[in-house]
Amino acid sequence: MSSIVSIQNLTKTYANGFQALKGVDLEIRAGEILALLGPNGAGKTTLISIVCGLSMPTAGRVLVDGHDVVTEFRQTRRLIGLVPQELTTDQFETVWNTVTFSRGLHGQKTNKPLIEQILKDLSLWDKRDNKLRELSGGMKRRVLIAKALAHEPRILFLDEPTAGVDVELRRGMWAAINRLRETGVTVILTTHYIEEAEEMADRIGVICGGELLLVEEKQALMQKLGRKALHLELKAPLDVLPPTLAALGVTLSDNRRGLVHEYGNGDGVAGAGEGRIGQVLAAVEAAGLSISDVSTRQSSLEDIFVSLVGAKP
């Protein structure tokens, strides 16, 4: 797949000296959903702001469909829709007017059937004549999405689209984003909800301290770094781990009541040790240990994220 957004050595230092981005390189592929994960202040919003034109880069450059975002801003901004993080709306405008305004601002003639379709897709059609101040937070968020879609962008940036949005609405929004992807729109979303990235993204980028720590296919990332662990809880605490178990890589938990057997570890040897589960169980029985509970656990993206960001000095 060809890349539709190409970010090259992007650096941003604000006037107060704060370096928000430290030479980020990133290729975004046409048609994918890319999630940018990172803690608050990681540089996610700054990155989006530069691509969309809200901020100027200090160094490096960004190409959108082959055009430079600074010198050829007309071509690049026409392709991009932006849903900002804050709920910034014209309180006194109606839903219809504010969405129509967005389309005009992007140089496109009014297209009533299109706007109608967008509002219906986002369940806003009944509210089209309401003033924005009469809407709930979730509806305002959808109005911002409608505004961003009004000029039929090929790339949509969503800056924390589901921050402060309830679970049901969040799922609705994920569905809406998936429908967009089916029409060929490239979606870049920032989030600090790991669940969101895990649910939606094709690829995941992790940003921390202004650096892009990694970009990976979600599946590959989970597989590469994901760990599985078998936990066996013992009826009676154990003082010393029997050598037969130690030889199989089993460890004793701190409270001496649990045995942990990890498999599919982070060294890229997914599945290693998987076949030993039978041996471990047999060894436990041979050692005469009685077990009160068994559980397995697969590490989530959250664990991966915490270990990545935590490992960073």
Partner: peptide, 14 residues
């Protein structure tokens, strides 16, 4: 003041 200026800045307008 309201923040809606983001739209002007991200639109293809000079």
């Amino acid at each position: 003041f309201t923040g809606t200026i983001y739209e002007l800045l991200s639109a293809p307008v000079s």
